[in-house]
Amino acid sequence: MAALLDIKGLRKQFGGVTALAGVDLTVNEGEILGVVGPNGSGKTTLFNSVTGVHRPTAGTVSWRGRDITGIPANAVSRAGIAYTFQQAMAFPGLSVFENVQIATEHCSNTLTNRPWTTPASLLEFVGLSGLSGEKAGILPFGRLRLLGLALALATRPSLILLDEPAAGLNDRETTTLVHLVEQFPEHGISVCVIDHDMKLMQMLCRRLAVLDFGSKIADGPTADVLNDPKVLEVYLGGAL
C-alpha cells in the first residue's frame, strides 16, 4: 500500500499552547484510518493543520509525494482532500439542493470513477433527496451531518477527513453513516476518521492512531491498539 498522505513532525502552537507536538502519521491508499484521543488531545488541530484551516508551526505534509504544507484550504480541496468539520456545517440560508450544487460546481477533479457527480445523485446517496428544496438551516442535526458528507463527496476527493461524524447522531443515523462510509474505499476514496464512539471505530477502522497531549502514543491494528497499556492508561480503562 502506498502512502497517500504523509505527515511528518507536525507541530501547531496557539500562543503558549502546544496543540500538536510533532506528529507523524500516514494514511494509505484505500484504507479507513481512525484517530482517537481524549478531548483536547489535538485531533481537530491535526485535521485543521492538514486542510489549510490553520498553518502548521512546523513539520511537513505530503500528498502523493508532493509537499502541500501550509497551502490554503481551497487548494487542499482541489488537490483531492475533503474535510467535514466537527461542528456540522452547511450554507444555512440556501436550499439543500443549492448547497450541493455549489459544491459540485467547484469540483475541479476530473476523476470519473465516482458514482456521485450530480447534486441529485449525491443527495440520493446520502438519503436527502426528499429535502432538496428545504433550507439547510432548518435541517435537524443528523440530516445536517449527512448534507456535510454530500458536500465533501461533491468535491470528488481521493481522501476524506471526517471529524466526529457520528457526534450527535442517534443509533439509526449512526448505522446509516457507517454504511455510507464503508463504501468509500471501493470508490477510490480513502478515509481518516476521528470519533469517540469506539464501537463505531471498531466497525470502520482496521488501523487506529491515538493522540494524547498533541503526541501520537500508538498506531497500529485496531485490536492491538485497544489493548496497548499506554492507551488503556490514557482512557483510565473506562472509556474503552
Partner: peptide, 21 residues
Amino acid sequence: GRTLRAIRENEKLAASLGINV
C-alpha cells in the same frame, strides 16, 4: 452568484469546497 452566496453563508466551508474566497 451561488459562489458569492456560499461565501456570505459560510466562508470556512466555502474554502473547504475549493472556492477561492
